[in-house]
Design a protein around this nucleic acid. Structure first.
Length: 675
DNA sequence: ACTAATGTCCTTTTT
DNA sequence: GGACATTAGT
């Protein structure tokens, strides 16, 4: 009460939220169901702490994405500004980005080179592949696990803190007979990373954990912060939990927020137990729960409550709506994928005509490729949209090529970057690239020395130019965008020889340069790009115009934390949701159910669940004859439809009408049209 | 010895 | 369209 008089904005919270925001000493676990104001609570908490005099630079806010941290800090700043207070420099970001920041300044104390560079997932897999070949594990009678599998196994060992045999037995039984080879591979992987001054994503966490739990270094780090706040705690892994235990010092307090019903990252070794066991790991924890939902109208919430009621194991209770009655969710059966596209677009336009902007409507799907036909159709009809998730912009070959050149300038010991750049040249393959790299190593890793490598004549001029380019990047003090521009000057001529449609790729390089223009140092540009890659087409587009409006397309995973007036879940068929990739165990299926729950709980006013009855182009996993089945999670008892009949008309199957000879005649005529 | 091209199989979610 | 193995070509 006293607090409300001092800070009137606290009256904008409900009593439970307010209790969490103004909570005093000791660890705090907030179990917050979907739409119960989790983000709001964290933002107000930051604002509150700053308002009562906590130094913003001593607050650490850990979130799942960079965007989430920014959103919260923007909201917090808006609140404090109402009492005439600036928010200041709160430490905010993902575990990985904060880890990077801490390791960059503490590299020496951990025995790391301060010039280390970061390997992203594909680079790490590439290194696994390289070592696998060097160690002679490839080419035998028994097939060795592919490089990405090797990395996944390694990564799970690290992130789950489990020994190799356990991981193999539990998740990769078909690789169990390679245990010795894998162990050797991982040993070499560690060595090679160290000699190349490289850290992979997992290293960022692990080194931070080592720093935080070290008997002498840990306490020094912990006393650096007064408050540590963690969002989406249900999706952290045991290394992150260890970091948090280390970050708990004498005088500081820790607050975590999460919802076990929304844990959807166990494929990345996230551990719900982190959240459930928090009170055990942090003695004297206070637990608070938020159950009042401010997002969804009652019929939607009843549906999502019924949906999650199918979960075998669950801790959070049912939510109740503060928003009252509204339209019932609709389960829509479509004849095929095109009918689904048509139906969704028709409803989108209908809602738009009734006043709901496109940006307040979202189409959600389990896997990125499931929106392909919809994207084509939206493009054809001129309806603007932005897609979130599954972009893999950085994994495009031409983007990787260009960035590899910058990475050499940053860390000349990065052999992966070298090999990639060298193998672009004509006449240079694995063996010559490796020889060229030995030449550079012999010159003390001076990148300029590549000029003097006596390679095949077809590549000699390019090698010379590469040396000049690298010298240019090293010697001058240009901004990242200018450096990228130089790199493009070297690379664009190669681009035309290397790829089919160089214009498209060239445009991508232009947007990359656009992104680079936001950075002042090459190191920051490279690292930020790796740790926070563009995740949506809007990240790649220029700044939006005020009057622009666009529809949202998103993977369910990328939609986490979002909410929209109208939500369409498409491809709600067995095999897609749950994904047939995840039907191997009870645990995986449970997680798919939670994925479905995350999807449906994004809706505020209207919810449509759609599934196509028939698939033409893709094999349908469960029933082999082109017909799908409704998602096992979405029975009519769960989503109570008002639209019993199927939408769309299937084209008649004419495959038996023509004889084989007539078919051949038809195709022959089509083929010879230009003769 | 090395590179380039061809063929076959598989295709989730992301820091 | 990518990973990987195999084959053709220099």
């Amino acid at each position: 009460m006293e607090d409300i008089q001092r800070f009137p904005w606290l009256a904008e919270l409900n009593p439970n939220q307010r209790a969490a925001v103004t909570y005093g000493e000791g660890p705090l676990l907030v179990v917050a169901g979907a739409g119960t104001g989790k983000t709001r609570t964290l933002a107000y908490r930051v604002a509150y702490l700053v308002s009562i005099g906590v130094d913003p630079g001593r607050i650490l806010l850990l979130t799942f994405t960079r965007r989430a941290a920014q959103d919260m800090l923007t909201r917090a700043a808006a609140i404090t500004s109402r009492t005439g207070l600036a928010l200041g420099n709160v430490w905010g970001g993902t575990f990985h980005s904060v880890a990077h920041r801490l390791l960059r300044t503490n590299a020496k104390s951990m025995g790391l080179s301060p010039q280390f560079t970061v390997l992203d997932e594909t680079d790490a897999a590439e290194l696994m592949g390289l070592l696998r070949a060097e160690l002679g594990f490839t080419g035998g009678a028994r097939r060795f696990p592919r490089k990405s599998t090797c990395l996944n196994i390694y990564s799970r060992c690290v992130n789950a803190e489990l020994p190799l045999p356990d991981v193999l037995g539990r998740h990769y039984p078909w690789c169990a007979n390679w245990e010795d080879e894998l162990k050797k591979l991982f040993r070499h992987y560690e060595r090679r990373k160290h000699s190349g001054r490289l850290l992979d994503f997992d290293d960022l966490l692990v080194y931070w954990a080592e720093l935080a739990t070290h008997p002498r270094l840990g306490p020094r780090l912990a006393e650096r912060f007064d408050h540590v706040l963690v969002d989406e705690y249900q999706d952290t892994n045991v290394v992150q939990a260890r970091i948090l235990r280390g970050m708990r010092g004498e005088g500081n307090s820790i607050m975590v927020v999460g919802d076990d019903a929304q844990s959807i990252y166990s494929f990345r070794a996230a551990e719900v137990r982190n959240m459930l066991d928090f009170p055990v790991q942090f003695p004297n924890t206070t637990v608070m729960t938020l159950e009042e939902n401010y997002r969804s109208k009652t019929p939607i919430l009843e549906t999502t409550n019924r949906l999650i009621a199918q979960a075998r194991e669950r801790y959070t209770k049912d939510l109740w709506s503060a928003r009252g009655e509204g339209a019932r969710p609709q389960l829509v059966t479509c004849v095929d994928e095109h009918a689904q596209d048509d139906y969704v677009i028709a409803r989108v336009l209908e809602h738009w005509e009734q006043g709901t902007p496109l940006r307040d409507q979202a189409i959600l799907f389990r896997a990125s490729h499931l929106s392909a036909s919809l994207e084509v159709e939206l493009g054809r009809r001129g309806i603007p949209f932005h897609k979130y998730g599954g972009l893999r912009f950085l994994e495009n070959a031409h983007i990787k090529d260009v960035l590899a050149i910058l990475r050499i300038a940053e860390n000349a010991r990065d052999e992966l970057a070298w090999l990639r750049v060298l193998k672009l040249l004509e006449g240079i393959g694995d063996a010559t690239a490796a020889a060229a790299l030995r030449h550079v190593a012999a010159a003390g890793y001076d990148p300029r020395s590549i000029s003097t490598y006596n390679g095949p004549s077809s590549a000699r001029e390019h090698l010379h130019n590469l040396g000049l380019l690298l010298a240019d990047l090293l010697e001058t003090d240009q901004l990242p965008a200018a450096q990228l521009s130089r790199v493009r000057g070297y690379y664009e001529p190669l681009l035309e020889k290397l790829y089919e449609q160089p214009e498209v790729r060239s445009r991508d390089l232009a947007s990359l340069e656009q992104i680079a223009s936001g950075f002042r140092s090459r190191q920051r540009f490279l690292v930020e790009l790796q740790l926070d890659p563009p995740n949506s087409t809007s990240d790649l587009a220029g700044p939006p115009h005020l009057d622009d409006d666009w529809l949202i397309l998103s993977t369910i995973h990328s939609a986490k934390g979002g909410e929209w007036d109208v939500v369409y879940l498409v491809h709600a068929a067995d095999g897609f949701l749950p994904s047939d990739m995840a039907c191997g165990s009870e645990e995986e299926l449970e997680e798919e159910l939670r994925v479905a729950y995350v999807a449906l709980t994004r809706a505020r006013d209207y919810l449509y669940v759609l599934w196509p009855l028939r698939y033409y182009y893709r094999r349908v996993p469960s029933s082999g004859h082109g017909y799908a089945q409704l998602s096992r999670f979405m029975s009519s008892e769960v989503v109570q439809t008002m639209e019993p009949k199927a939408h769309g008309v299937a084209p008649e199957d004419l495959s038996d009408v023509l004889s084989t000879a007539e078919q051949a005649d038809l195709t022959a005529r089509m083929r010879s049209r230009w003769d």
